[in-house]
Structures are given as C-alpha cells and as structure tokens.
Design a protein around this nucleic acid. Sequence first.
DNA 1: GAAGTAACCTACTTCGAGTAAGGTGGACTC
DNA 2: GAGTCCACCTTACTCGAAGTAGGTTACTTC
Lengths: 188, 188
Amino acid sequence: MIQVAETVFAERGYTAASMDEIAERVGVSKPMLYEYFHSKEGLLLACIREARAELRRVTEQAVAGSPTGEEALRQGLRAFFGFIRDRKQSWLLVRHEASLVGTASEELEATRQQQTDLIATLMGDFTDPETARFAEESGLLQAAAEFVVGGCERLAIWSEQREDLTPDVVAEYAVNLLWGGLAQISGR
Amino acid sequence: MIQVAETVFAERGYTAASMDEIAERVGVSKPMLYEYFHSKEGLLLACIREARAELRRVTEQAVAGSPTGEEALRQGLRAFFGFIRDRKQSWLLVRHEASLVGTASEELEATRQQQTDLIATLMGDFTDPETARFAEESGLLQAAAEFVVGGCERLAIWSEQREDLTPDVVAEYAVNLLWGGLAQISGR
DNA sequence: GAAGTAACCTACTTCGAGTAAGGTGGACTC
DNA sequence: GAGTCCACCTTACTCGAAGTAGGTTACTTC
C-alpha cells in the first residue's frame, strides 16, 4: 500500500498524484486510504517515514564494525550512495520531505536530526578530545555534520545524472573532499 | 505582484496557498494572474526566478574584486548567508524549488548550474594547473562544487535556528571546513 | 462620435480532497 | 439456528480551489 503510494508520488509528484489513482492502483477504495492515513499528507508522511527508516537501517548496518572513523565514514557513504542508486523513488521522497510536508512534523525532524547526529558522533570519535570538546561547544561539530549531510545529498543528486560513476567512486570523492578539504586540490 | 505571491507562498506553503487569496491581496482579480503567469505553477516559477536572480546578483557582487580565491569564497559565502538571514521568504522558495515545480524546468536547472559553475570556477582559479586539469577531467571539480553548494545550503538551514550566529560566523565555519576538511579537526 | 482594443471583472466549469451513510459477511449471544 | 453486533469496505456525495468564457469599462484613433 505504502509502496504503491510511493511509486505514484514519485511518478506524478505530490500535487499531481491523486488519491483516487492511488486507491485504484492499490485495489481499494478511497475512504480506506483515509481510514489508515487520515489525509493525503498523512499518506505521504507514512511513505517518507518508511523510506527514511530504510535508509537509516542500511547506513547504520554499513557503519557498524568499522575499525576506524574514516573507514566508517567511507562505508556509510557507500551505503548511502548505493541506496540512492537502487531506490530512486524512496530517495526522491526523503529528499523533498521538507517542502512536501507543509506542517513541520516533529517526528520527521527528529529522524533527520538522528542522521546528522550519527555523523557528528562519527566525526567526534576520530577527533582528539580537546579539539572535539571545543568543536562541540562552539557548534562547529554540529555545523560540520550538517555540512557533510548537505554536501552528500547534493552529490547524490548530481551523481544521478552520471551513470558512469558507481556509488563507490562517488563515496570516494566525498571522503576525499571531506577529509582533506579544498586545500589538497589547491596548489598551496 | 510577484512579491505578494512570494509572501503568500512562504506563509501558507505552495499547496495551501490559493490563487484567490493572492489575487485579493494583490488587489486584482484571478484571471489577471492567469493572464500574466499562465498557471499557479507559472506564478511560482516567476517567484523562484526572481529570488534566484536576486541571490545570484548579491553573491556575484560580493565575490567581484576579491584578490584571492579563498577571499572570494569567504565573501561569497558571507553574502549567501546574509541573504538567507535577511530574505527568508525568498530563500524558502529557492530551497524548495525542485520539489515544488513538478515539471523540471530547464531554465531553473540552468540557473542552478550557473551557481555551481561559479563555485567550480572559483575553486579552479586557486588550484594549481595540473591538479585542476585532473580534477576537471575526472569530474572531481564538479563534484566538489556540488558538495560545497549542498553543504552550504544545509548549513544555512541549520543556522536559521541559531539566532546567536551571525552570517559571518557561519561563513567562517564553512570556509574552515571547506578549506581544511575534517583532517584539521581530527587529532591526526 | 464610432470603431477598435487593452485591461479587467463576474460568473461559471471541472476536478480532486475529504466525508456521510449505507451494505456485507463473519462472530458471538441466547 | 435466529438475531445482533461489529469490522471492513463501498457508493455517492460536498466543498473548495484551479482554471476559463464571455462581458464591461475606459481609453485611443480616425
């Protein structure tokens, strides 16, 4: 049911997707959708929730057991870019959640926060204690995590159009950028 | 007219905003809106176009005349974060354009591309020629630019909720992250 | 002053989100 | 075994908003 809805939303876009069509393709009548999901936005939320959970599961699994922070980062990113390649529909929903859902949902906000926190923790882990404490207090660590998430999302969108790049290559790009910064590609 | 529409879209969200309301607040009748903008989506597009142009103008002006690439980056980011602080409404539209506009507009896509290219050029400028050539051919330079844009957008969203941070501080965070990468906050 | 036209409005149609009220089949009571 | 209840599902509606048809005003041009 959620799967069908996800497909229709991805195909048509949120506004253009009609509950009638979803209901028909599910093989059920419209009031049923409203029974279960309360509203069109509710249905969308359910889809996003599902997609987000899946993404989270995949990345956490990938990260688990990595010996070093850098390795964890690499594995996590590989999983992330892989997910995007394999599950375009789900990714579309996750990517657009903020604008699709009119009323900001605390729940979704919280889930997103978890994602960022995971990154922040990873980064904190391979940072020396003193620096980490400073970074955390000043908000720099949070900022860095946000930056990483945003950068990777954009990178993912970009890589969608480059069929020649495998998720692993993209992940490698990201790790390099992240780790070394621009200084490394600068001559100085 | 576009300004009013922008306000309403920002207040209510795209779906919830009604053409009737916009028309009324503009002080004109609905068919007029359709005369000028063809459709609701057309009106939205016009708003986004306007906002994007403004953002571009501001950043390009800020970048112009910087002696070094790093300085240009800093100035550009300051302008960017400043814009977001001052013109929340416009920023909301730009930020959500992809999901709001169902039919991908080549024109908007092109504008976004220009933004990324500007960054890519900046980065190419302060990179030694050999590295730059490699980076460009492999797509790394493009990837880096996309990464920067995405990271900064996310950072901007994050900084909205931190009233204590001025745009300049956020810009400084971004420059540091960009330039030095994570290696610098790592102990190694 | 008549013809034409640009700018605008009122009053519709249409379509889709959301709902009310009713039907069907199985389980449970006596 | 008949009656009653209840979960589940449907048809058939309301209502609001996008988009449009056709008329009206006022101003220009000859």
